[in-house]
Simulated assay, not measured.
Amino acid sequence: MDGQRVTKPKDIRRRHTEAFKLALVERSLVPGASVAAIAQDAGINANLLFNWRRLHLQSLASAAAKDSCGPVLLPVTFVEPVAACAPSPAPPPPPAVTARAPLGTIEINVRGTVVRVRGPVDEASLRTVLRALVGAA
């Protein structure tokens, strides 16, 4: 090539220490904190700080999953079956037709665990599942 030397472009990306990243992530996780303002004060792009936050929260979730002691058991109540020779009570009248909730899906992500509820679900059951998830977290 006519004696010209081909050079590679310099890597102009800045390298940030883990302590710097962690300090910014912790500041951004404070309730009411503005990620954009924190990033601007530090002289970095807000998208970079959002990425660091996502990676930090994922590492916390995976560490929590490793530390968990396994599945959570829910209380169960057994009811004695009615004797076959006893007369069965008259069936209750059918419930009055009420407006049904539209069918849909609820998806809840709690620290990497996804709970998906499809179709109509009564409020008490959903509360029980959510309490169990909060207790496990």
Rank of each mutant, 00 (worst) to 15 (best):
G3N: 12
V6P: 02
K8M: 13
P9Q: 06
K10H: 04
R14Q: 08
R14L: 15
H16V: 14
T17E: 03
T17Q: 01
E18M: 09
K21V: 10
L22P: 00
L22D: 07
A23E: 12
L24R: 07
L24W: 03
V25P: 11
V25I: 13
V30P: 01
P31E: 03
S34Y: 04
A36S: 15
A37H: 13
A37T: 15
I38N: 11
I38W: 04
A39P: 10
A39G: 03
G43D: 08
I44G: 05
I44Q: 04
N45H: 13
L48K: 10
L48M: 15
L48G: 06
L49E: 10
F50V: 02
N51F: 00
W52M: 06
W52F: 11
W52T: 06
W52V: 06
H56L: 03
L57N: 09
Q58A: 15
Q58W: 01
L60H: 01
S62D: 05
A65V: 01
K66S: 09
K66A: 15
D67H: 00
D67T: 03
S68D: 10
S68M: 05
S68H: 07
S68I: 08
P71M: 05
V72W: 04
V72P: 01
L74W: 02
P75W: 00
T77N: 03
E80A: 15
P81Q: 06
V82Y: 12
A83F: 04
A83W: 00
A84Q: 10
C85E: 12
P87D: 14
P87R: 12
A90M: 11
P94V: 13
P94C: 08
A96F: 06
A96Y: 04
T98H: 09
T98Q: 14
A99S: 08
A99N: 07
A101D: 06
L103C: 04
E107Q: 11
I108Q: 06
V110Q: 04
V110S: 07
R111N: 11
V114H: 05
V117S: 12
R118P: 05
R118G: 12
